[in-house]
Nucleic acid binder design. Structure first.
Lengths: 144, 144
DNA sequence: GATAAACCTTCCCTCGATGGGAAGGTCAAG
DNA sequence: CTTGACCTTCCCATCGAGGGAAGGTTTATC
């Protein structure tokens, strides 16, 4: 099976498959006489695993660890769960940050009339002179 | 005022200031005789504006538009609001996506015993043989 | 046997928004 | 005169790909 078929059957495309090989996520494929990569069912399974893990939002480093655990038939499920908890922690952090940004911006946007006049609390907020800048400067003078 | 001071007073660092200049977010700075960039208070105000907009989560292209509106004293606030609404839409989409990922993964992790045994619903989910793959293949055969 | 198409290969560039660091110029204090 | 703190430009790395060039192979069709 050449790369296109392996890619299609795992939900990927050839570029991504080559990329995953290049970064060492999968073993370098065997080559046919003409230099083409040659895949078997086992490889397709691994590629599908990677595809699904990407869909679930895992980064490639985390997928690398999940693959190692998957291959190890005697893994303790606690280790898999640990990877998942890490991922969950990251997701939580990102969601929290984005939600803060959203709430903040939503508030400002609600306060903006959105008419033909130039006054806008959003721009005012962005250009506000702030005590923080002064504090920062003081901090740095003292530290230096 | 040289770049370090301008950067500090706007909450940035010199690298970012040069970068913003390079991508055309700010005008190229005047140069001193020795080639050093020279900034005034107005430049610091712009840099601070950019810094705060970044903190609020805006990307540089959106900031470019906000800067243009900020400079235009006769802007209608509706245009500023429109930029903010775009940003809000993006934030919402990202949050929705991340929340879906989180709920899905949280569910799987809860179902995982997390003990010394190898059985794990997370790995099972990732390696599950799926009708979807077959369907996709069929779709593509038909299309081709 | 020619030709076109659909593949395959490697290689490099692009994205966003920086950070790191090299190599070299400038300036003030000790 | 040297040290150190600046400044300059330049290139490389990140993450996870996609785009596309340049060139080789195979398959189908005429």
């Amino acid at each position: 099976m050449r790369i296109r078929e392996a890619a299609e059957r795992s939900g990927l495309n050839p570029k991504r498959v080559r990329y995953y090989e290049r970064v060492g996520l999968i073993e370098p494929a065997r080559r046919l006489d003409n230099g083409y990569r040659d895949y078997d069912e086992r490889a397709v399974h691994e590629l599908r695993f990677i595809h699904r893990a990407r869909e679930m939002g895992f980064g490639l480093e985390r997928i690398r660890r999940l693959l190692a655990l998957w291959r190890d038939r005697s893994r303790p499920s606690s280790e898999v769960k640990a990877v998942a908890e890490e991922q969950l922690g990251e997701l939580d952090a990102k969601i929290r940050r984005l939600t803060e940004l959203r709430e903040n911006l939503k508030h400002l946007a609600q306060c903006c009339d959105g008419d033909h006049r130039p006054d806008c609390p959003i721009l005012e907020e962005l250009s506000r002179e702030e005590a923080a800048a002064v504090e920062q400067e003081l901090d740095e003078r003292e530290a230096g």
